[in-house]
């Protein structure tokens, strides 16, 4: 009886074996497509790393899944905002400490009144990154517990990392 249990792996054993090795970008892509389907707007492999685009409404749901499913993207590496001209883009770099694979999550938001839910409930590490991105690009992170300026002084006007903010020697 015992031998039988040993030869056929239990779901737990399977998960352990699964979590031991890093997944390739294509495998992660397939797992995400299975879980979310149309909610992943676009996915692409850039520099051996999977990048997915999601809408702002689905961001929290996708990130919670990434963190808590067996994909185990538990480590927020980097968060930054990019001014893409007609729209703004927020780029989340996540990786897994346990499984050592990585993913890039991107959210496109309109230039006027840009709003995106805060990732603070999922990743506490997003705290200061979001405050910095908010002041640099003028993005509102809804649900952030402490939305003050971080690096700039309180009375600073303008959003430095937007392309229409010019330095003193630019014209």
């Amino acid at each position: 009886m015992k031998g039988k249990i040993k030869t056929s792996p239990t779901p737990d054993d399977k998960a352990d074996a699964f979590s031991a090795k890093p997944l390739s970008p294509e495998e992660i892509e397939a797992a995400l497509a299975k879980a979310f389907g149309q909610k992943i707007q676009q996915s692409q492999v850039i520099n051996k790393e999977l990048a997915i685009w999601v809408s702002a409404e689905n961001l929290l749901e996708v990130c919670t899944f990434l963190k808590e499913s067996e994909l185990a993207f538990n480590h927020p590496r980097c968060l930054c905002g990019v001014d893409r001209g007609e729209c703004l883009e927020i780029v989340y770099h996540l990786c897994s400490i346990t499984r050592k694979h990585k993913i890039t999550v991107k959210v496109k938001i309109p230039r006027e009144k840009p709003k995106v839910p805060s990732l603070y409930p999922v990743f506490k590490g997003a705290d200061w990154h979001e405050r910095e991105t908010a002041e640099m690009l003028g993005i509102t992170f809804t649900g952030h517990p402490d939305p003050r300026h971080l690096l700039l002084r309180e009375d600073f006007e303008g959003f430095p990392l937007r392309k229409d903010f010019l330095l003193s020697n630019q014209s």
């Binding site: 850039i46 520099n47 790393e49 590496r77 980097c78 930054c80 990019v82 780029v91 770099h93 890039t104």
Partner: peptide
């Protein structure tokens, strides 16, 4: 032309550079 995130281990931790 293109983008990429690269990281190394410095004496403080993970130094990353994201270039677009």
């Amino acid at each position: 032309d293109g983008e990429g995130y690269f990281r190394t281990e410095t004496s403080v931790g993970e130094q990353g550079v994201y270039i677009i």
